[in-house]
Design a binder for these strands. Structure first.
Lengths: 201, 201
DNA sequence: CAGGGAGGTTAGCGGTCGTTAACCTGGAGG
DNA sequence: CCTCCAGGTTAACGACCGCTAACCTCCCTG
């Protein structure tokens, strides 16, 4: 056991660099030779670790979707465990988790809604199902907090707030943006404000 | 004169279909043969109208950026013309214009922040400059309405609201979404709420 | 110390893609 | 009526790309 912070494996290096390159230039815009070069091996050496270029993208997208969903489920369970936390606190927790992810894994967030259609049917269905579960989980929390919101409106609002939170890659003109904590707090306030305004409140 | 609603020219057909295809499958994911097929001619026939595939993308992106910017300038001028319209009304006008665009030209909105890096240097610089002007114009209006917002925070807020408004393609699961007017109004309220929350208000 | 698998390498194949070349055609204009 | 050009066509070229094949090395293990 203890695969904790054990020096990243080759596979992980490859995935990380592939994610960065895919996000920068698009799935079709990156060649396997470039991905190989980014980790110091070259070209076909990648096939010792992955079945193909598609498999890398699939693993990335499935991984993101699973990680978002399980994180959200965990946060929701924690809240319910304390015997009915205030709905605002639950929503705050979801928002915080999403922001952490968007700020720490920018390339993945970019891929997440940009390259989904490049997947093979089976993988795409899986990813979409995970994404849908994630959205529905948010919708439930939002509607608990704003009961006057109809379900379609709540779903639209959730998608829009994702758009807001996922805008972080655009803020990333290297360097100068405030600091991480400040950005996170600003995004958090805006997300809450957007939901509040979506309802009648 | 009077090139009003004169049956769309071939060039316009091509641009429209190319925008749709680029948005669906990415610039590198679409072949010239497919673009040709989409307008009923095939493959190299496109070269009678465009210098190349890059030129189509460039024209699309420059067109979008110019159209957004000139629209916003017009709205701002109208407001100032009436001798100092309330800042809220100016912001509402900007938001409304952006939403109209996002709802009516979804493929273009998608391309706008997704395929910018596939342009040749000169075109990319031009597009970025237009985008920057557009952002700065919003930043000015937002800061006039919320003077307590610092410039970096205002700029971040503007980018985030763009993320929110540009999320429309994700709402577009064919058919069932509310109606256009309802969606527009929801997005408008959320954008205003997000800005208000960004400031201390 | 034999051997074998994990993880590389380079060469090259087959397919696709953007683009050019060469040719064709219908209809407007002198 | 001849001409010519705008706007198509098909063929083909060269580049590139994903992937496989064949081979080579460590290094770990019995």
């Amino acid at each position: 056991m203890a695969t904790r912070t054990d020096a990243p494996t080759r596979r992980e290096q490859i995935l990380k660099e592939a994610a960065r390159l895919f996000a920068e230039r698009g799935f079709h815009g990156v060649g396997v030779d470039e991905i190989g070069a980014a980790v110091g091996i070259s070209g076909p050496g990648l096939y010792r670790h992955f079945a193909g270029k598609d498999a890398m993208l699939a693993e990335l997208l499935v991984g993101i979707s699973e990680s978002l969903l399980t994180g959200a489920k965990r946060r929701l369970a924690e809240a319910d465990g304390v015997g009915g936390t205030a709905p605002e606190a639950v929503l705050d927790s979801l928002i915080e988790g999403h922001i952490d992810f968007a700020l720490d894994d920018r390339p993945l967030i970019t891929l997440h809604d940009r390259e989904l259609d490049r997947l093979r049917d089976a993988d795409r269905k899986l990813v979409r199902q995970l994404q849908r579960q994630y959205v529905e989980l948010w919708v439930g929390v939002v509607r608990r907090l704003y009961p006057d919101l109809g379900e379609p409106a709540a779903r639209s609002a959730v998608h829009s707030v994702f758009g807001l939170l996922n805008s972080t890659p655009h803020l990333t003109r290297p360097g100068s943006l405030p600091d991480r904590a400040g950005t996170a707090e600003l995004l958090h306030r805006m997300a809450r404000g957007a939901f509040a305004a979506a309802s009648g409140a």
